[in-house]
Design a protein around this nucleic acid. Sequence first.
DNA 1: CCAAATGCTTGATTGGATAAAGTATCGGGA
DNA 2: TCCCGATACTTTATCCAATCAAGCATTTGG
Lengths: 135, 135
Amino acid sequence: MVTRIGALEQQLWDFVSAYDAAFDRASEDNGLSAAQACTLTPLTGEKHTMSELAGLLLCDASNVTQIVGRLETRGLVSRTPDPADRRVKQVAITPDGRRLRRAVAKSFTFPRERVARLDDDEQEQLAHLLAKMLS
Amino acid sequence: MVTRIGALEQQLWDFVSAYDAAFDRASEDNGLSAAQACTLTPLTGEKHTMSELAGLLLCDASNVTQIVGRLETRGLVSRTPDPADRRVKQVAITPDGRRLRRAVAKSFTFPRERVARLDDDEQEQLAHLLAKMLS
DNA sequence: CCAAATGCTTGATTGGATAAAGTATCGGGA
DNA sequence: TCCCGATACTTTATCCAATCAAGCATTTGG
């Protein structure tokens, strides 16, 4: 029994590879690693804790410590102790961080460009198929 | 002007994230890093050169030297000088390498499972949409 | 025959990821 | 109140991935 990869699976691999490569480029074009860009992405106006970020990024808390440390050094996020519970650090994106995050999003043209190749009906189809595969 | 992310773009991000995470897990469940699994993947019965792999993996040749070195240490690939041009190294996957690669493919159930949620018509639709976005 | 180009490796540095151990703080019982 | 365990984060160590610059061996072309 040979695990033969179907054409659809191959297309998925190719699409994901291209998507990932494009995100890497968008990040590095703006002086960030992909991991740093991913860390910046989910930060809202709210404060976030280190563990919350670790949960979102699916990684260890000590990893977040390092990445947030580098982002903080560059003034892209702030890290302040929570007055209510001094074990907790509140992480917030700074105006500079917001600007850079927007620049990365602007550079990351891949999804926009590729989705734009589909007409309205096809976009709706794709949304439906993705919803089914993600549910 | 705010770059508001459309729902479809968000779905793409979510799908790609899940896909990547699943591939990481499949690799690490078999004792490989994602980069090592990616290096093993394209090796056919043919011999491959280091530069060829660097081209496929979109990375530096010296990076390939390291990764292939680790794979060779574990007996998953062989690296022999090309008799016709002794600058060139011929990289080939070993039987052990093949076995492990198949194990990774087997562990990487994500694409199979998710595609299986679509009926035949939908799979055909998806293939069409991906082809359009990849062309 | 030699100079430039090619193919790969080495060495150095940076960053990401994980695990184990450590610190500080909080919270709930005895 | 005093601890003890749990929680939140950091530190340290280690490994791997990635890139760059430099280097070596070999090949190729003038």
